[in-house]
């Protein structure tokens, strides 16, 4: 009983966010005998429990019983990163490639050389917010901007066919239609509006402002997540070995925890699935410190060519710059 009353106020502090102080007391509560486990007070005023803002890890007192000081520090750091991230728009303004050079001015010589080489083929970059959705967000803007600039109606017709196919895939997988249809229609609306000469047509500025609007932007990101998840589940046999190697979970669990929730980062597997499902080739240019022992430094890239268009002639028009943990958009010369 004594433990109960003591534990109460102490645990409350964890909710108040005094992580540093509390980490110590948490280690103390770890010592409580197992049957005291459920006698520990949870703060009745703690509205955050269950409130569950998506993508945030709230401070749950009970998590501390299974964690240690280091976890608290990591959570604090993650919160700081999220706070930092929301200060920049989802999709930023186009910047000359020299902005990248300036960023790495004091960086490694390999990176500086690679940026110089990038400058031979690419003129500009457009950064996206590092919130775990950066791949999808970059892809969204790069693709729609390409359609807006080229007015490639046959490409729009082609992708519309694929989008319909993706809908059928989700249907056949047993997804409830009304849970995904809004996301599909918001994407199709954007696709429709980048084609010019209609009442609904939009300019590049408007595309940018929509891509920065939380509602439109997040709905399109979620559309891509649905498409990616549907493709992975449909071809579960093909993807299974990659997924098992990557996360040691089932295809089902992988889709539920690493594809469908917002803010879950995109890996090679996701890109293959999205590119295949929509039939859009994607080039990813890697800016990292890798280099060959002999020979000059070269910038690696990988082209994701959709399985359906294996004629080899597909030159990707969506080009993304990958730096470990993040994707931005690259513009060619």
């Amino acid at each position: 009983m004594a433990n109960q009353t003591e534990a109460g106020p102490r645990k409350r502090k964890a909710v108040d966010g005094e992580l540093g102080v509390d980490a110590v007391t948490i280690m103390e509560t770890n010592q409580l005998p197992a049957e005291e486990e459920d006698a520990i007070d949870s703060n009745p005023n703690n509205n955050s429990v269950g409130a569950g803002a998506s993508g945030t890890h709230e401070v749950f007192p009970e998590e501390y019983e299974w964690s240690c000081f280091r976890d608290a520090e990591i959570m604090q750091q993650q919160a700081a990163i999220r706070e930092e991230a929301i200060k920049v728009p989802y999709v930023r303004d186009k910047e000359p490639l020299s902005a990248l050079a300036a960023e790495f001015e004091l960086g490694s010589s390999i990176l500086k050389e690679k940026i110089r080489l990038l400058g031979e083929q690419y003129t500009a970059l457009r950064r996206t917010r590092g919130d775990g959705n950066c791949f999808y967000r970059s892809f969204m803007f790069a693709y729609l901007e390409h359609i807006l600039e080229t007015q490639d109606i046959s490409e729009v017709e082609r992708i519309n066919g694929n989008v319909e196919q993706c809908k059928l895939t989700l249907q056949s997988l047993g997804y409830t239609e009304f849970t995904y249809e809004d996301f599909f229609s918001i994407f199709k609306e954007q696709l429709e509006s980048v084609l010019q000469g209609k009442e609904t047509s939009i300019s590049t500025e408007e595309l940018l402002s929509r891509s920065r609007d939380q509602f439109v932007s997040d709905y399109v990101v979620m559309f891509f997540r649905f498409v990616t998840s549907g493709e992975i589940r449909k071809r579960a046999e093909f993807f299974e070995p990659f997924i098992t190697g990557l996360t040691n979970t089932s295809v089902e669990q992988f889709c539920k925890s690493s594809v469908e929730p917002m803010g879950e980062e995109c890996d090679h597997v996701h890109i293959i699935a999205l590119s295949d499902a929509l039939g859009v080739a994607i080039r990813v240019v890697y800016l990292d410190r890798s280099s060959c022992d002999n020979g000059p430094v070269a910038v690696n890239h990988h082209d994701f060519i959709p399985a359906a268009s294996a004629d080899g002639s597909t030159e990707p028009f969506v080009t993304l710059l990958y730096r470990p943990g993040h994707y931005d958009i690259l513009y060619r010369r």
Partner: peptide
């Protein structure tokens, strides 16, 4: 489940996705 009835469940927090109705 807490005394005030609030719930800690992954799909209602960081594993949420709009696929759940």
């Amino acid at each position: 489940v807490y005394a005030d009835g609030s719930i800690c469940l992954d799909i209602l927090q960081n594993q949420w996705s709009p696929i759940y109705d």
